[in-house]
Computed example of a mutant assay.
Amino acid sequence: MSSKFNSLFLCMACVLFLMAAQSPSAAARRFLGVNPWCRTSSHKRLCTQMAKGAATWHDASSNAMQATLELAKRIQSMSGVLIKPAIASLEPQSRQSVLASCAEDFDIMISDLEDSIKALEVNDMGTLTVHLSAAYSTDCSDALAEFGIEDPFAKVSGVYLKMVDNCLAVVQQI
Rank of each mutant, 00 (worst) to 15 (best):
H58L: 15
L18R: 03
A54N: 01
N63E: 03
A54F: 05
D107I: 09
R39C: 00
L32N: 08
D142V: 09
K52M: 11
L10Y: 15
Q93W: 13
F31V: 02
T40F: 02
S141E: 07
L82T: 04
M125G: 10
T129Y: 07
N63M: 06
A145E: 12
V156R: 11
S94N: 08
T138V: 15
Q49K: 05
L132T: 09
F5E: 13
F106W: 13
F31I: 02
A135G: 07
A26I: 12
V171M: 04
V15Q: 06
A64P: 02
D107Q: 14
A26H: 11
C140A: 08
E104M: 14
S62Q: 15
V122N: 06
V164R: 01
A55Q: 13
H43P: 00
V156C: 07
Y136Q: 12
A103I: 04
M109C: 09
W57R: 10
G33F: 00
G80R: 08
S79A: 15
N6R: 14
S133E: 14
T127H: 04
D105W: 06
R29Y: 06
K44C: 00
G148M: 03
A55I: 10
N63D: 03
K118A: 13
A27H: 09
D151G: 04
A51Q: 02
I83N: 04
N166M: 00
S94K: 12
G148R: 05
C47F: 00
E91C: 05
V156M: 12
A54T: 04
K52Y: 13
N166D: 11
D151A: 04
T68D: 01
S3T: 12
G80D: 14
T56H: 01
V15W: 11
D165L: 03
R95P: 10
A54C: 05
S62R: 10
M1F: 10
M109V: 09
G80N: 11
D107A: 10
K155F: 15
A20M: 14
R39W: 00
V171I: 03
L128D: 05
E114I: 11
Q93K: 11
V15D: 01
S42R: 14
I75G: 03
A86Q: 03
D115I: 10
I83V: 15
M1W: 15
T40C: 02
F106E: 06
G33L: 00
E91I: 02
A86V: 09
I117E: 02
R39V: 01
D105L: 02
L168I: 13
L8F: 09
N6V: 10
V122L: 10
L120C: 01
S61C: 06
C14E: 09
S62N: 14
M12C: 15
F106G: 01
V122W: 06
S61E: 05
L10C: 06
L32D: 12
A55G: 08
D107P: 04
K118E: 12
W37D: 02
A67Q: 10
S79C: 10
S111N: 09
T56Q: 01
E114M: 14
K155R: 15
N63T: 02
